[in-house]
Write a protein that binds this DNA or RNA. Sequence first.
DNA 1: CCATATAGTCAATCAGGTTGTCTATCATGT
DNA 2: ACATGATAGACAACCTGATTGACTATATGG
Lengths: 156, 156
Amino acid sequence: MSSDAPGFELPLRLLLAFRMLIDELHAELARQGHPDLRPMHGFVMQAIGPRGTTAVELGRMLGVSKQAAGKTIDTLERVGYVERTTDSHDTRRKIARLTPYGMDALNRSARIFDDLRARWAHELGEERLQALEADLRKVTPDGLWRLDTPGWFGSL
Amino acid sequence: MSSDAPGFELPLRLLLAFRMLIDELHAELARQGHPDLRPMHGFVMQAIGPRGTTAVELGRMLGVSKQAAGKTIDTLERVGYVERTTDSHDTRRKIARLTPYGMDALNRSARIFDDLRARWAHELGEERLQALEADLRKVTPDGLWRLDTPGWFGSL
DNA sequence: CCATATAGTCAATCAGGTTGTCTATCATGT
DNA sequence: ACATGATAGACAACCTGATTGACTATATGG
């Protein structure tokens, strides 16, 4: 099948590779005290960043509505990764900030991703891995990381 | 950021590359008479294959419950990509088969993916692209393509 | 021939997303 | 100073896709 339709393999492998990294990340995170963290939480927390964000800003970054971003913040808040504070300069704004627990998850994620990358470097060779990263950079746009993957994938 | 956390970039680029391919596929499919096809439909139709499947089997292949698989078949049936027939040897089973319209979508998808791959080959060079594919093969498992991406990504 | 396993369906529930609406608060221009 | 318009957040209604649990119909095997 892949001989007569060589183009089919690429997207599958890309998705599979992504999933493997994410699944292994969360298996390891679970071992390190973050069993409730779901794939998209990591993305959202990174988007929130160390300085915090509002629902509107988060929605723009993630490419979803402010309501959806607000609901996601609700979830993260309920699980303890995020807390809401009010902006003293603009009482309308409620800034979502990472809690120490959230920062811990983010820091651990970064380390685990580095470890996973190192494993790939071991399997492929550092040179080949750098080439792979460079090539991916070449075919993907910079900036703009749309994270509306769940809804994007399904629908109709 | 990518200097102190080099491992963060890889998963993002993989996802982004996957999304680009899928988005361009569906933009082109829409131009070619399949405007209602959603990303996951292609995956499901490929899982159904030319010989057809039942909801239970499909659920196993996709890693979702038989009910979810049944609903997905309902959707595909409603849009005309799939039709249900009964198995004469086992009247419990209802086999979902691709309609000619569904086969057309699948064939066009294959051609479009080939074109997209050719574009990447043009941008990266055929050699580099083959190296990329080989490397992805090396770090991803064969067989077992779990396609439960929508639910997998979100949840909690 | 009955007991068990399997295929499919129905119903209730949940997560996440969307749009629309509403209120409170800021920011600006006259 | 104030009226106007823009923005932030919350609430409600609705859609899709997935889950579990319960139920029916049909095979299958002891």
